[in-house]
Simulated scan of single mutants.
Amino acid sequence: MKFTGIVPALVTPFDARQQIDEQALGNLIESLIDAGVHGLFVLGTNGEFFALSEAEKVRIARLTVEAARGRVPVIAGTGAFATRDVIELNKKMTDVGVQALSVITPFFNAVSQTELINHYSAIGDASPLPIMLYNIPAKTGMSIGIPAVATLSQHPQIKGIKDSAGNFDSLVQMLRYRSDDFAVFAGTDSLIYWNLLAGGDGAVAATANAVPQVVMDIWNRFQAGDHDGARAAQEALRPLRDAFALGTMPSVLKKATDLLNVRVGPCRAPTAELDAQTVHKLEGLLSVYRA
């Protein structure tokens, strides 16, 4: 597959007992495919991968593949600190039928850039599926440096990067290594339009859970040459993104998805649901999407 377009980073729906809600996951997937998305990204940061067991991760990937029914490709997050653990989970994800893998940098214990290159190279060597690098230094405590991107972009199985650092200058530097065989995706939703304008390939967009039509509008208008419309759609994401400060990730996104799209339930503890006062404030911020 080729990494391109708008690929929502799915939240993981839970029921009241904080167990995986299969029906809600199916409803979310249908809403996104109906909106015209180009793929589905599961088990990312907003998908609470850090709160899931390996068995749950494999189950979610399998359910997503089954629900997608080949209409769009499925990218599964498989990151872990240990190289061997990533390789083993990649084998299991390959068996359930995902089309690509996303591997976050090692976390908690920051490694050197040489160790990082060796980590990703070994994972790529062992993978039959294309791999998307995942850079999110605010959560992992380390970043994929530009020289490492330059090196890893040449690996035959590493086909792109999702950059969630939120630094446009760094994203532009990564675009120097973009090619037909290596895609550069914005992982920060405020930079979707700007990444496309700079020559990037698309975005892995968490806000699409709640407002898929707005996110798709950025892409569709940009492709049609309507830059004013694409910028307006990009700006329309601001109220939702500003609301994220109201709670612990991804509690606000999940509640916004409940209110604007389909019900996806609570987060897994210790992340708590929003209290009534905060929900009321959130509803006010989201009222622009109901106009």
Rank of each mutant, 00 (worst) to 15 (best):
H280P: 01
T105A: 09
R290N: 05
V37L: 09
E48W: 03
A150W: 03
L43C: 00
L259S: 07
L286N: 08
M174L: 06
N109S: 06
F49N: 01
G79C: 08
E235T: 13
L40R: 01
A67P: 08
D15M: 09
N90I: 00
A67F: 05
S170D: 04
S102V: 11
A203Y: 12
G36M: 05
A110H: 07
V252I: 04
G47C: 00
L175D: 05
Q23R: 15
A205I: 13
N46S: 09
G225Y: 01
I218D: 06
P137G: 12
A138P: 00
N118F: 06
A122C: 03
N109K: 01
I33T: 02
L191W: 12
G36R: 10
I87S: 03
N135V: 02
D15W: 11
L28F: 06
H119C: 09
V98G: 01
V65L: 04
E54F: 06
V172S: 07
E88Q: 11
A256T: 08
V215C: 13
E88R: 15
E48V: 00
F108S: 12
V214R: 04
T207N: 13
S143V: 07
L240A: 10
F50G: 00
R221N: 13
A272C: 10
T4I: 11
A232Y: 07
D95V: 03
A269S: 14
E54N: 12
V262G: 08
Y120D: 08
G124K: 07
G187V: 01
V74K: 04
V98C: 05
A76D: 01
K2P: 03
L116F: 05
E88L: 08
W219E: 02
T105Y: 00
G79S: 05
P13A: 10
D180V: 04
L133F: 03
A35C: 08
Q157T: 06
P106M: 09
L25N: 08
D85A: 14
R178C: 11
E48H: 01
A203F: 14
I131Y: 02
P156K: 11
L282D: 08
S287T: 13
L260P: 08
M132Q: 12
R17G: 13
I192D: 03
A205F: 06
D258F: 04
A80I: 03
P147Q: 07
L116C: 05
Q213V: 13
T78R: 04
S287M: 10
A224H: 12
R17N: 15
F185Q: 09
A208E: 08
P73V: 02
Q173F: 02
V262N: 11
G36T: 06
L116E: 02
T248F: 02
F41I: 01
V65F: 02
T278W: 12
E88G: 05
Q277I: 14
V58P: 01
D242P: 02
S164Q: 07
D169H: 13
N135S: 01
P147K: 11
M1W: 08
A236M: 11
Q23G: 14
G199H: 08
F108T: 13
A67E: 11
T64W: 05
T45F: 04
A236W: 10
R59A: 11
A148Y: 03
V74H: 06
G26T: 10
P250E: 05
